[in-house]
Design a protein around this nucleic acid. Sequence first.
DNA 1: GATGAATGAGCTTTCATTCAT
DNA 2: CATGAATGAAAGCTCATTCAT
Lengths: 203, 203, 203, 203
Amino acid sequence: MNKKDKKVSKREENKKNNRSIIIKAGIEIFLKKGISQTTVRDIIRNTDLASGTFYNYFKSKEEVLIAALDESAIEIGQELRARRKKAKNLEEFVYSQIRPFFDFARDHSEIFMIMSSNLNDVQAFSVETPMMTLELESLKEDIIIGIEEKILPDVNPDYFCSVIQSVAEGIAFTLVRKSMSTEDIDSAVKFCTNFIVAGIRSV
Amino acid sequence: MNKKDKKVSKREENKKNNRSIIIKAGIEIFLKKGISQTTVRDIIRNTDLASGTFYNYFKSKEEVLIAALDESAIEIGQELRARRKKAKNLEEFVYSQIRPFFDFARDHSEIFMIMSSNLNDVQAFSVETPMMTLELESLKEDIIIGIEEKILPDVNPDYFCSVIQSVAEGIAFTLVRKSMSTEDIDSAVKFCTNFIVAGIRSV
Amino acid sequence: MNKKDKKVSKREENKKNNRSIIIKAGIEIFLKKGISQTTVRDIIRNTDLASGTFYNYFKSKEEVLIAALDESAIEIGQELRARRKKAKNLEEFVYSQIRPFFDFARDHSEIFMIMSSNLNDVQAFSVETPMMTLELESLKEDIIIGIEEKILPDVNPDYFCSVIQSVAEGIAFTLVRKSMSTEDIDSAVKFCTNFIVAGIRSV
Amino acid sequence: MNKKDKKVSKREENKKNNRSIIIKAGIEIFLKKGISQTTVRDIIRNTDLASGTFYNYFKSKEEVLIAALDESAIEIGQELRARRKKAKNLEEFVYSQIRPFFDFARDHSEIFMIMSSNLNDVQAFSVETPMMTLELESLKEDIIIGIEEKILPDVNPDYFCSVIQSVAEGIAFTLVRKSMSTEDIDSAVKFCTNFIVAGIRSV
DNA sequence: GATGAATGAGCTTTCATTCAT
DNA sequence: CATGAATGAAAGCTCATTCAT
């Protein structure tokens, strides 16, 4: 490898790095201060870059957030939707949502915490952030269909939908905050599924 | 009564009310824009008062929010705590929390929506906002005691606590957003209590 | 006059002054740098005021310019229009335009220089800056009417209009740049009128 | 010729042309936005080139403008000067200026419009832009000489000079804006010459 | 206690320019 | 020579807060 190659790769590396550096710095600040109180300057201050450099990569902090989501969270919504279509009964339906959601929360805990703690802001600008928390309408539709097809019990769909979402979110949040182990996740999935299934059945 | 008298009395009235006027204006803006994106200017703009007047009553928008909470929500936390102490079994325990919480959400729907939609911000600055949503630790302690005293089933207290909080919050939010009637509230309390009790029992 | 009165008047005075101070500073910079290259910061730098103070009075540099015009130039367009309507022949028509235009250029030489040197920019934002230089269409219409009514000779109205405007502007500009005396103005008016009348007659 | 060759030759072509490409792009933007509001970025954005490339050819947008003028307008000033030296009387003197000036305006209408619409900016930086509009001093000197030599009537040279310049500029501007035909140009030259000659004679 | 003009810190964003490749 | 990412100065503007009245 000669000198020129070295330099080229160094430059290229930098370019790719800077984008990641900004995203990483953004995630840190979003977590610390919340989305709406984070400024572009906060992000670049958390970096060695010059202020102008930010705008070589992003137009706004929102783009940073979207990029952070895109890098990790784009599929979870699709997965949740796909899985619940295949459910044959209440247990499967609930499990199909809880399992991947908790896995996501474990694997992308920072993103999960940001979204979970800033639902308001995320909803405000994000048309296409495909997270369970934001897909209540889609979930509700599938619940209505499930009820019609006798796969799910006949429970008020608004409540049905709300409890799945809030219980999953609440337990996941508790888990992540305590940075629990994989075993904890497994037991939490079990707890959560049992809880919701039994609760729904009883009403 | 001549013109001048009229003005004077009006002004005096204002003097008494300016605090309330600011709080009211603040609540409106907090609801509309979210806490962290509300500025002091926003609040005074939503008022006939001069900007300086704001600082005769409050040091910051946060103080306005605290005042808004204090005016209506100070007792709910105490009530929740008091009631659950008296519970003799799981049903009573859950009901003791759900009933007043839903009543509060109905009677102070604006405050409830603000807090519910801005949990992050509220937590950030408020050491002393006595709402259910923020009293997980206290609730958890009582759950642990309840378990020890065999009043409550032996369920992981973190999960126990989390589901009460998240289910109540989620259903209440759904209710308020749809501005449902008193009857709806009653049925929601019933749904919620049954759901949680059955869920907890099953695990 | 007691202490309080003194203070009040001082405050009021300041308030009025600051507006004028900004306008004055703006005119200076507009003259020096041209409109489009003047920044709001240039204007406040040319002042003892804080940057925020600017925005208590104006939204942009354009508003400063409009204010500068409004203070002195708002009537000149109307006057020119009114006077030419009364003209009974070519001499009167030309004189009716040249005389007030030159008076204006003398009495408001700074404004005149700014407008004259920044026609492009002025036209860009100003719907209602009623100066001769910007009222070609209105002037042309009156010329056409004048020709129809046999008051004016039958000359291409575009050219007719253009020569009045450009000769007046050119000579006025020359005058102002050399800051000539009142006598000079009188002789310039005479020169200008004779020149245009004779020129028009000959074609 | 394979793909690579093609690219190479294209690139070489570009190398030769990049200067012209930038100038052309600059003229477009100067026309559209005015000189002072044009940025280097605007110019390179109007190009396929990289921003750094700009600085291989020019130090600033002003240099682009000068180059644009140099490419087309360098001779007009010299021509005007040369021609008026040969004039034997007033008619010839005026005609010697009007004719080439109008031809120039027709043949280089973009340059003419830029200069005509941005006189202020052009004057600001350009010591050596050889256009009639900017050569008043030289013209005035020749007028003074002409008067001394009894070739021209004894009229105030400032006014003499000003009317030639402003009338020519005004009529040419009108012409170009309406993109008139060659015949129009001829008749405009005649109008202009007659007008000035008669006007001057009368005073 | 009410007023609102003044303040200057601090934000977003664009820009001219450099320089490693 | 061409490239375009990096830079930091500087623009427009808003804000919380003060303070003379």
